[in-house]
Write a protein that binds this DNA or RNA. Sequence first.
DNA 1: CCGACATGCAACTCTGGAGTTGCATTGATC
DNA 2: GATCAATGCAACTCCAGAGTTGCATGTCGG
Lengths: 105, 105
Amino acid sequence: MTSETLVPVFAALGDETRWSILAALGEGDASASALAGRLPVTRQAIAKHLVVLQEVGLVEPVRVGREVRFRVIGAQLGETARRLETIGAQWDRRLAAIKEIAEGL
Amino acid sequence: MTSETLVPVFAALGDETRWSILAALGEGDASASALAGRLPVTRQAIAKHLVVLQEVGLVEPVRVGREVRFRVIGAQLGETARRLETIGAQWDRRLAAIKEIAEGL
DNA sequence: CCGACATGCAACTCTGGAGTTGCATTGATC
DNA sequence: GATCAATGCAACTCCAGAGTTGCATGTCGG
């Protein structure tokens, strides 16, 4: 989970359909076929999105019999959020420092 | 700053070039032309990225004479981070609740 | 006023990603 | 073992966006 993996996570989160999938999974684990019944896209399209979400660690496959259900991993969102927070704080600190210098304090 | 604007922010953050721009701006405000000198892309390409970043509130234009410098807004990152944290926590709570039910507690 | 530099706008190419359809394959279940 | 549903894989279309070039506009200093 190094910082090189951060941008792909945002890319994965920058799609409305994937948020729909994540929201649906938030109500309980579900398979691609089950999700296809609730969302206005094909099962195959959902399967591709699930691959993307899995690659960035936002989702986890769980085999149940002959179907593959997917579980949301909330911890990955938390981790991403903490990194964002850190970066934002660094920028604010730097801006504050520059401002102080500019104002001659 | 409603939740409809959240996905576009992630879409904006899901691009390596835009992170390069944000990183460069983190070292101090700069114009599109100045950034073009440091990054391996054209000024026009950078200008488009700056439009995107500005539309989601991650960056702010400041006219200085005849040039237009851009400033990073760290607070917007912090806001986004807090929302992510909240969503992740909700998912984790829900998962914990489901797990308890499943385990018969 | 005029040259030089910065920005703005428009048209174009090109690649990647989102979505579809169709078919093959696997695995329960009776 | 035959069947049916779920998944997996492949090829295709389509469009948004990342990047480029070219030119027009604007604005500062001499």
